[in-house]
Simulated assay, not measured.
Amino acid sequence: MLSERPRVLSVNRGSPVRQRVPRGKDTGIRKVPVEVIRVLDPGPRRVEEGHGVSGVEGDFVGNGRHHGGSSQAVYAFAREELDAWGAELGRDLPAGMFGENLTTTGIDVDAAEIGDVWRVGTALLQVSGPRVPCATFAERMGERGWVRRFGERGRSGAYLAVLEPGEVRAGDEIAVEPGGSGIDVPTVLRALLGDQQAARAVVAAHVLREPHHSRLAAGLG
Rank of each mutant, 00 (worst) to 15 (best):
R65N: 12
L102P: 00
E80Y: 02
A87F: 04
G96H: 03
G115M: 04
M97C: 01
H67N: 03
D116T: 07
Y75Q: 04
Y75V: 05
A76T: 08
E80F: 03
I107R: 14
D110E: 10
R119V: 15
L82Y: 14
A76M: 08
G86L: 09
R65Y: 14
G69K: 14
S70N: 04
R79E: 15
G96K: 02
W85C: 01
G106D: 11
R119Y: 13
Q72N: 07
G106V: 11
S70H: 14
L82M: 15
T104Y: 13
E100C: 07
A84W: 15
V109M: 09
E80S: 02
H66A: 12
E80I: 03
A112Y: 06
S70W: 13
L82G: 08
E80W: 02
I107S: 04
E81P: 07
L93F: 04
I107G: 04
L89W: 15
I114D: 13
G69M: 09
N63P: 05
F77R: 00
S70L: 04
E81L: 11
E113A: 02
V109W: 05
I107T: 12
P94G: 03
N101K: 13
V109L: 05
D92E: 15
D83S: 03
H66S: 07
G64Y: 14
V74W: 10
G96L: 00
H67Q: 06
N63Y: 12
I114F: 14
E113W: 06
A76C: 07
G86A: 11
G115F: 05
R91N: 02
F77P: 03
N63T: 11
A87M: 05
A95C: 11
G64S: 06
L82A: 12
A87L: 10
I107V: 15
D108N: 06
G96P: 01
I114N: 08
G86N: 08
F98W: 12
P94K: 04
R91D: 04
E100G: 09
V120M: 10
D116N: 06
G64W: 15
A95R: 08
D110V: 10
T103Y: 08
G64P: 10
